[in-house]
Simulated assay, not measured.
Amino acid sequence: MADLYIYYKVRDEHAAQLAPLVRAMHAGLALQAGVMGTVKRRPGSLEGRQTWMEIYLATPDGFDTALAAAVRQAGLDQFTDGPRHTEVFMDISTCA
């Protein structure tokens, strides 16, 4: 299982419109894939843009495909400014 950290930019004027879409998408993913996401943002903004991050812990194989479909269905791209960047992390095994 992998943890996904996805960050992207949001214009200040789009933040209020995007937040409920992300939360609704998270609710749908929790029902569909059993993974509950969270969303965070950096404090403040730079040049009218905020940095947001979605976090999905312990995702099963194929979750990235379900997430991509959910992002399209939710229409998040209309309120983000630029691409979504995904970082993948895994637990460190205690066995060598």
Rank of each mutant, 00 (worst) to 15 (best):
F79Y: 09
A15E: 01
A58Y: 10
L46T: 12
Q73V: 08
H85V: 00
L21H: 05
V35S: 10
L4P: 03
D3Q: 00
C95F: 15
V22L: 10
T65H: 15
Y5W: 03
I6A: 11
S93D: 13
R84V: 02
L67M: 04
G28H: 10
L4N: 06
A33S: 00
L18M: 05
L31Y: 00
A70V: 09
A58R: 02
G82F: 10
G75F: 08
E87D: 15
S45R: 02
W52N: 04
R84M: 08
A69Y: 13
R23D: 08
M53L: 00
A58M: 07
D77K: 12
W52E: 06
R11C: 12
V88I: 05
Q17P: 00
Y7F: 12
P60W: 11
C95M: 08
M25N: 10
L4S: 03
G44E: 01
Q78E: 14
V71P: 11
H85A: 04
A74F: 05
L4E: 12
G62W: 06
L21M: 02
E87R: 12
L21G: 03
H14K: 03
D64P: 09
K9L: 07
F79G: 03
P20I: 09
L76I: 06
F89D: 14
S93P: 12
V71R: 12
R72K: 11
D77P: 09
K9Q: 14
R23V: 07
A15F: 01
T65I: 00
A66R: 12
A58K: 09
D61N: 11
G75N: 00
Q50M: 03
V88Y: 09
L46H: 14
A27P: 09
V35T: 10
T94V: 13
R23G: 06
G48K: 02
Y8I: 01
F63S: 08
T38Y: 10
A68M: 00
S45T: 04
G44D: 13
M36Q: 15
L18C: 03
A66Q: 06
L18P: 07
G28T: 11
A19M: 06
P20T: 02
A68H: 13
F63G: 03
K40Y: 15
T59E: 09
A69M: 11
G75P: 07
I55S: 07
L4K: 11
A19I: 08
M1H: 07
M53A: 10
I92L: 14
R72N: 02
D61M: 09
G34K: 12
T38V: 01
S45C: 03
G44Y: 02
R49T: 13
A96P: 12
D3N: 04
G37D: 10
L76P: 00
A69P: 15
V22S: 06
T59P: 02
Q78L: 07
T94S: 11
D91R: 15
T38W: 14
G28W: 05
K9D: 01
Q32F: 07
L46M: 06
A74S: 11
R11Y: 04
F79C: 01
M25P: 10
H26M: 01
Q17A: 05
L67I: 14
M1Y: 10
P43D: 10
T51G: 08
P60E: 01
C95P: 06
T59M: 01
